[in-house]
Amino acid sequence: MIVVGWLDEFMWGSLVVLQIFFLALIMAVTWGLLGAAAKLSSNRAAKLTATVFTTIFRGTPELLVLLIIYFGSAITLTSIAQFFDPEVKFVDIPPLWAGSFAVSLIIGAYATETFRGAFQGVDPGTVEAARSLGISSTKTFFYVRLPQMWRLALPGFGNHMLSLVKDTALVSVIGLEEILFTADIATSVTIQPFTMYMVAALIYLGFTTVIMYGVRLMEKRANRHLEGGR
């Protein structure tokens, strides 16, 4: 089997995918929560900012967002660096970070809408009850709103996580040696595109299967308080 010789490369590629996944996931959840909070707030500037954010990042092709963020930041950084030292040729944000950041913005924009809908599904009476007990609004958010919202957000958010894993494949275009990049290289050496791309696809399928299973467990846990209801 010719694949065996490439297994360690694929493994390193998988590690890169995992790194991007977790970095982008943390950032995407943050953007999503901030975006949802902004959209639901009564502050018009916050609302407008969130709307611009979701419009841009849901409305442009993901590959373009990635390229614009990577090269945009590189050009900006390079010109700043050249201002201080004209000898500098090229400065960029490490592709891992640029890629994770770009993907997180896209997924964060979708998550904003999912979280917004989920927050709206939380019974406002429970929030009033918490406030009437003297619980501060910040603590009410973390102990009453968030745990209830999470259950409603999970099905949609599970989809976002799957998109996120698959979007990591895009990051190969800015030179990050992830799974697709490895498959490209392997193909150019072995001239066996079908085999190599199948390996890449199977690895992705492995990741997404684990995520789907994980989401199912989380949903079960999040719904446990509804069991045996009357």
């Binding site: 009850a129 007990l133 603590k139 308080h225």
Partner: peptide, 23 residues
């Protein structure tokens, strides 16, 4: 409240413990 407004994600005792713990 008329509609009870219990915290659905917490048990009965969990509902009672929240404010004493947080406040």
């Amino acid at each position: 409240f008329q509609q009870f407004n219990l915290f659905p994600h917490l048990t009965a005792v969990g509902n009672l413990m929240l404010a004493p713990r947080l406040v």
